[in-house]
Amino acid sequence: MHNHIIPDHKLVESYLEGNEIALEMLVKRYKQKVMTAISMLVYDRYLAEDIFQETFIKVIHSLRGGKYQHEGKFLPWVMRIARNLSIDHIRRNKKMPTITDSEGNDISTFIRTDDLNMEDRMVRDQTHGHLYDLISRLPEEQREVLILRHYGDLSFKEIADITGCSINTALGRMRYAILNLRKMLVTVTK
Protein backbone atom coordinates (compact mmCIF):
# COMPACT_ATOMS: atom_id res chain seq x y z
CA MET A 1 0.00 0.00 0.00
CA HIS A 2 1.44 3.35 -1.02
CA ASN A 3 0.90 6.12 1.45
CA HIS A 4 2.20 9.22 -0.28
CA ILE A 5 1.13 12.66 0.88
CA ILE A 6 0.40 13.79 -2.67
CA PRO A 7 -1.14 10.95 -4.69
CA ASP A 8 0.39 10.07 -8.06
CA HIS A 9 -2.60 11.21 -10.08
CA LYS A 10 -2.46 14.66 -8.46
CA LEU A 11 1.20 14.95 -9.42
CA VAL A 12 0.39 13.87 -12.98
CA GLU A 13 -2.36 16.50 -13.18
CA SER A 14 -0.06 19.14 -11.77
CA TYR A 15 2.67 18.20 -14.27
CA LEU A 16 0.27 18.46 -17.18
CA GLU A 17 -0.69 21.92 -15.93
CA GLY A 18 2.94 22.93 -16.29
CA ASN A 19 4.47 22.15 -12.89
CA GLU A 20 7.85 20.60 -13.73
CA ILE A 21 8.56 19.79 -10.08
CA ALA A 22 5.66 17.31 -10.09
CA LEU A 23 7.47 15.12 -12.63
CA GLU A 24 10.66 15.36 -10.60
CA MET A 25 8.73 14.15 -7.55
CA LEU A 26 7.32 11.18 -9.47
CA VAL A 27 10.75 10.21 -10.79
CA LYS A 28 12.28 10.45 -7.31
CA ARG A 29 9.38 8.51 -5.80
CA TYR A 30 9.81 5.51 -8.11
CA LYS A 31 13.38 5.67 -9.42
CA GLN A 32 14.69 2.99 -7.09
CA LYS A 33 11.91 0.48 -7.77
CA VAL A 34 12.06 1.02 -11.53
CA MET A 35 15.87 0.84 -11.64
CA THR A 36 15.93 -2.28 -9.47
CA ALA A 37 13.35 -3.99 -11.68
CA ILE A 38 15.16 -3.08 -14.92
CA SER A 39 18.52 -4.17 -13.49
CA MET A 40 17.06 -7.53 -12.54
CA LEU A 41 15.47 -7.99 -15.95
CA VAL A 42 18.61 -7.28 -17.98
CA TYR A 43 21.45 -7.90 -15.48
CA ASP A 44 23.67 -5.28 -17.11
CA ARG A 45 24.27 -2.06 -15.22
CA TYR A 46 25.03 0.10 -18.27
CA LEU A 47 22.09 -1.18 -20.26
CA ALA A 48 19.83 -0.75 -17.22
CA GLU A 49 20.83 2.94 -16.96
CA ASP A 50 19.96 3.45 -20.65
CA ILE A 51 16.61 1.69 -20.31
CA PHE A 52 15.84 3.65 -17.15
CA GLN A 53 16.34 6.93 -19.01
CA GLU A 54 14.41 5.69 -22.04
CA THR A 55 11.52 4.60 -19.83
CA PHE A 56 11.02 7.97 -18.18
CA ILE A 57 11.55 9.88 -21.42
CA LYS A 58 8.78 7.74 -22.92
CA VAL A 59 6.68 8.48 -19.83
CA ILE A 60 7.16 12.23 -20.37
CA HIS A 61 6.16 12.04 -24.05
CA SER A 62 3.18 9.80 -23.31
CA LEU A 63 1.96 12.15 -20.57
CA ARG A 64 2.35 15.19 -22.79
CA GLY A 65 0.70 13.35 -25.67
CA GLY A 66 -2.32 12.57 -23.48
CA LYS A 67 -1.70 8.83 -23.68
CA TYR A 68 -1.90 8.20 -19.94
CA GLN A 69 -5.34 7.34 -18.61
CA HIS A 70 -5.49 7.71 -14.86
CA GLU A 71 -6.70 4.61 -13.08
CA GLY A 72 -4.69 5.22 -9.93
CA LYS A 73 -1.90 3.06 -11.29
CA PHE A 74 1.05 5.18 -12.25
CA LEU A 75 3.80 2.75 -11.14
CA PRO A 76 2.37 -0.31 -12.94
CA TRP A 77 2.07 1.83 -16.08
CA VAL A 78 5.71 2.94 -15.83
CA MET A 79 6.78 -0.62 -15.10
CA ARG A 80 4.97 -1.89 -18.19
CA ILE A 81 6.96 0.58 -20.31
CA ALA A 82 10.21 -0.44 -18.56
CA ARG A 83 9.46 -4.11 -19.07
CA ASN A 84 8.66 -3.70 -22.77
CA LEU A 85 11.85 -1.70 -23.39
CA SER A 86 13.90 -4.28 -21.45
CA ILE A 87 12.46 -7.15 -23.47
CA ASP A 88 13.10 -5.24 -26.73
CA HIS A 89 16.75 -4.78 -25.74
CA ILE A 90 17.14 -8.42 -24.72
CA ARG A 91 15.63 -9.63 -28.01
CA ARG A 92 17.70 -7.18 -30.07
CA ASN A 93 20.89 -8.30 -28.33
CA LYS A 94 20.04 -11.94 -29.03
CA LYS A 95 19.70 -11.12 -32.74
CA MET A 96 23.00 -9.20 -32.91
CA PRO A 97 25.53 -11.00 -35.09
CA THR A 98 28.64 -12.19 -33.30
CA ILE A 99 31.81 -10.38 -34.35
CA THR A 100 34.81 -12.65 -34.15
CA ASP A 101 38.54 -12.04 -34.31
CA SER A 102 40.90 -13.88 -36.67
CA GLU A 103 40.91 -16.87 -34.34
CA GLY A 104 37.14 -17.07 -34.15
CA ASN A 105 36.77 -15.64 -30.62
CA ASP A 106 33.71 -13.48 -29.91
CA ILE A 107 35.26 -10.03 -29.42
CA SER A 108 32.24 -8.71 -27.48
CA THR A 109 33.43 -10.80 -24.56
CA PHE A 110 36.51 -8.55 -24.34
CA ILE A 111 34.64 -5.26 -24.49
CA ARG A 112 33.99 -3.58 -21.13
CA THR A 113 34.09 -6.98 -19.43
CA ASP A 114 36.26 -5.81 -16.51
CA ASP A 115 34.14 -2.71 -16.04
CA LEU A 116 30.88 -4.61 -16.12
CA ASN A 117 32.10 -7.15 -13.64
CA MET A 118 33.20 -4.39 -11.30
CA GLU A 119 29.86 -2.57 -11.65
CA ASP A 120 27.87 -5.76 -11.22
CA ARG A 121 29.95 -6.64 -8.19
CA MET A 122 29.25 -3.19 -6.74
CA VAL A 123 25.52 -3.62 -7.30
CA ARG A 124 25.63 -7.03 -5.71
CA ASP A 125 27.64 -5.85 -2.72
CA GLN A 126 25.47 -2.80 -2.17
CA THR A 127 22.29 -4.83 -2.22
CA HIS A 128 21.04 -8.11 -0.96
CA GLY A 129 23.68 -9.73 -3.14
CA HIS A 130 22.94 -13.37 -2.67
CA LEU A 131 19.26 -13.24 -3.58
CA TYR A 132 20.09 -10.90 -6.48
CA ASP A 133 22.40 -13.58 -7.88
CA LEU A 134 19.91 -16.39 -7.34
CA ILE A 135 17.09 -14.54 -9.10
CA SER A 136 19.38 -14.06 -12.12
CA ARG A 137 19.49 -17.86 -12.47
CA LEU A 138 15.71 -18.23 -12.81
CA PRO A 139 14.24 -18.82 -16.28
CA GLU A 140 13.31 -15.49 -17.91
CA GLU A 141 9.52 -16.01 -17.68
CA GLN A 142 9.65 -16.82 -13.97
CA ARG A 143 11.97 -13.91 -13.21
CA GLU A 144 9.72 -11.54 -15.12
CA VAL A 145 6.57 -12.44 -13.14
CA LEU A 146 8.43 -12.19 -9.85
CA ILE A 147 9.89 -8.76 -10.66
CA LEU A 148 6.72 -7.25 -12.12
CA ARG A 149 4.62 -8.44 -9.19
CA HIS A 150 7.04 -7.34 -6.53
CA TYR A 151 8.51 -4.06 -7.80
CA GLY A 152 5.86 -3.06 -10.31
CA ASP A 153 2.82 -3.73 -8.18
CA LEU A 154 1.12 -5.31 -11.18
CA SER A 155 -1.59 -7.87 -10.46
CA PHE A 156 -1.22 -11.38 -11.87
CA LYS A 157 -4.01 -10.54 -14.30
CA GLU A 158 -2.10 -7.48 -15.55
CA ILE A 159 1.11 -9.52 -15.82
CA ALA A 160 -0.77 -12.16 -17.80
CA ASP A 161 -2.08 -9.46 -20.15
CA ILE A 162 1.29 -7.88 -20.89
CA THR A 163 3.21 -11.14 -21.17
CA GLY A 164 0.53 -12.75 -23.36
CA CYS A 165 -0.29 -15.72 -21.15
CA SER A 166 -3.23 -16.81 -19.00
CA ILE A 167 -3.53 -15.79 -15.34
CA ASN A 168 -3.02 -19.44 -14.38
CA THR A 169 0.23 -19.54 -16.33
CA ALA A 170 1.42 -16.33 -14.63
CA LEU A 171 0.57 -17.82 -11.22
CA GLY A 172 2.26 -21.09 -12.17
CA ARG A 173 5.43 -19.23 -13.18
CA MET A 174 5.40 -17.45 -9.83
CA ARG A 175 4.99 -20.75 -8.04
CA TYR A 176 7.95 -22.29 -9.86
CA ALA A 177 10.05 -19.17 -9.25
CA ILE A 178 9.44 -19.59 -5.50
CA LEU A 179 10.12 -23.35 -5.61
CA ASN A 180 13.28 -22.91 -7.67
CA LEU A 181 14.61 -20.21 -5.35
CA ARG A 182 13.95 -22.45 -2.36
CA LYS A 183 15.82 -25.33 -4.07
CA MET A 184 18.76 -23.04 -4.90
CA LEU A 185 18.92 -21.78 -1.32
CA VAL A 186 18.92 -25.34 0.01
CA THR A 187 21.72 -26.30 -2.41
CA VAL A 188 23.79 -23.23 -1.52
CA THR A 189 23.43 -23.68 2.25
CA LYS A 190 24.30 -27.42 2.15
Binding site: L23, Q53, I60, H128
Partner: peptide
Protein backbone atom coordinates in the same frame (compact mmCIF):
# COMPACT_ATOMS: atom_id res chain seq x y z
CA UNK B 1 14.76 -10.27 0.61
CA UNK B 2 13.53 -8.43 -2.47
CA UNK B 3 12.70 -5.34 -0.42
CA UNK B 4 16.33 -5.30 0.67
CA UNK B 5 17.56 -5.17 -2.94
CA UNK B 6 17.80 -1.48 -3.71
CA UNK B 7 19.44 -0.26 -6.88
CA UNK B 8 19.62 3.47 -7.50
CA UNK B 9 20.00 4.97 -10.96
CA UNK B 10 23.03 7.19 -11.49
CA UNK B 11 22.22 10.86 -10.66
CA UNK B 12 23.11 11.74 -14.27
CA UNK B 13 20.23 9.57 -15.51
CA UNK B 14 17.76 11.46 -13.33
CA UNK B 15 19.25 14.77 -14.49
CA UNK B 16 18.85 13.77 -18.16
CA UNK B 17 15.17 12.91 -17.56
CA UNK B 18 14.44 16.20 -15.79
CA UNK B 19 16.19 18.12 -18.59
CA UNK B 20 14.17 16.24 -21.21
CA UNK B 21 11.00 17.17 -19.39
Amino acid sequence: GMNAIKIEPHPTSVKIIIEES
